[in-house]
Structure formats: structure tokens, C-alpha cells
Simulated scan of single mutants.
Amino acid sequence: MTRIGTTRPLHLLNTSGHRGGLALFMVVVVAHWAEHLAQAAQIYIFNWPVPEALGVLGIPFPWLVTSEWMHYGYALIMLVGLLLLLPGFTGRARTWWKISLGIQVWHHFEHLLLLLQALSGLNIGGGAAPTSLVQLLIPRVELHLLYNALVFAPMVVAVLLHRRPGDTERAAMNCGCADRYEEVVDG
């Protein structure tokens, strides 16, 4: 017997709701990417000083850029989204989704470390601002672009493979995400 409130919603998300859940998740991911790309354009194309390069939403809401809570919250949403949608993937797509998930686990850890420093006031190396481990080697703006690219690239591969599965993968799928070429051709 299935318990209401535990496995049933997860089952629905990874069967009949997988296409919609995945689409919503990807909209959030792409919107986040747009913010990082806008900030990078402000810095590298328009030559804005880093403290003034706030992305699109950061211009009217500058506290968003400096809020470790907001950054941590997004990292957590990404981690949870990747975990919740994982059961709907099969075969090669599942492998690529797990790669994205593994990278996001580290990215989440780095944001947790930043949040803990912001809350405690104890920054790595006694610095003036919270610093992640890899940020000791790569500046924060570039590091966030790198992390997001490393999570996003295998995610895109996973989604493309999931939408166009091989015969064995299609037979193992419990969702309606796969493109239906036969219906389009026979139309």
C-alpha cells in the first residue's frame, strides 16, 4: 500500500508529471543561467566594476547578489530538483543526470560553506568576505560561471538523451518525455 504524502507524489512526478516537472525545472535553470550571463556581460562586455555588476534582478534588488541565503537556497533547489527528477531517467540519460547531480552536490557544499561563514562571521583565511574552497583559486564570478556550466552541460545531455531514447531505454521509461517520431511521421 502506498502512503499518501510520501511515495505517491514522487511517483507521479516521475511518471505522468515528469515532462512537466522537468520543463519547469529547466525554466528555473535557464533563468538562473541568464542572470549569470547578464552579470558576465556587465563585467566583460560593458566593463562594469564587479561590485556594480548585479545581473538583471540584482539591479532593482541588489541584496539578491550579496545574500548568501539566496545563493544557498538556489543551490539547494538545484540539488533537490536533480534528486527528485532522477527516478524518471533511464539508461544513458540517467548516467548523465547523475553526473550533473554529483557536481551539484559539490556546488551545494561550497554554498553551504559560504552560508556558514556569513552566519558565523568566521571567513576562511580570515578574509573580509565568505570564501569557498575553489574560490581560493578562481575568482567568485568566474567560479560561479564554471560551476553552473559543469552542472548544466551534463544536464542538457541527459535531457536530450531522455527525449530521444534508444529502444531499450524507451521500454524502461515510465514517463511520456520521449519524442514520438512515429506519430510525427505517420501524422
Rank of each mutant, 00 (worst) to 15 (best):
Met1Trp: 12
Thr6Ile: 10
Thr7Glu: 15
Pro9Cys: 08
Leu10Thr: 05
His11Ala: 15
Leu12Asp: 10
Asn14Gly: 02
Thr15Asn: 09
Arg19Lys: 11
Leu22Gly: 03
Leu22Phe: 09
Ala23Glu: 06
Ala23Thr: 05
Leu24Pro: 03
Met26Trp: 14
Met26Glu: 10
Met26Asn: 00
Val28His: 11
Val28Asp: 10
Val29Cys: 01
Val30Leu: 13
Ala31Gln: 11
His36Arg: 04
Gln39Val: 05
Ala40Asn: 05
Ala40Cys: 08
Ile43Asp: 03
Pro49Tyr: 02
Pro51Cys: 01
Glu52Trp: 09
Gly55Leu: 01
Val56Ile: 15
Leu57Ser: 12
Phe61Ile: 09
Val65Cys: 08
Thr66His: 10
Gly73Arg: 05
Tyr74Gln: 06
Leu79Pro: 00
Val80Ile: 10
Gly81Tyr: 04
Leu82Cys: 06
Leu82Gln: 07
Leu83Lys: 14
Leu83Thr: 13
Leu85Pro: 02
Leu85Phe: 08
Leu86Thr: 04
Leu86Met: 05
Pro87His: 04
Pro87Ala: 06
Gly88Glu: 12
Phe89Ile: 02
Ala93Asn: 02
Trp96Thr: 06
Leu101Ile: 03
Ile103Arg: 04
Leu112Ser: 15
Ala118Met: 00
Leu122Tyr: 14
Gly125Gln: 04
Gly127Thr: 11
Ala128Pro: 08
Ala129Trp: 09
Ala129Phe: 03
Thr131Lys: 09
Thr131Asn: 04
Ser132Asp: 11
Ser132Gly: 04
Ser132Ile: 07
Gln135Pro: 01
Pro139Leu: 13
Pro139Met: 12
Arg140Ala: 11
Val141Glu: 08
Leu143Gln: 09
Leu143Trp: 11
Leu145Trp: 06
Leu146Arg: 10
Tyr147Asp: 07
Asn148Gly: 14
Ala149Glu: 14
Phe152Ala: 04
Phe152Arg: 08
Arg163Ser: 03
Arg163Pro: 03
Arg164Phe: 15
Gly166Pro: 04
Thr168Trp: 10
Asn174Cys: 13
Cys175Thr: 13
Cys177Glu: 14
Cys177Asn: 13
Asp179Lys: 07
Arg180Asn: 06
Glu183Thr: 08
Asp186Leu: 15
Gly187Arg: 10
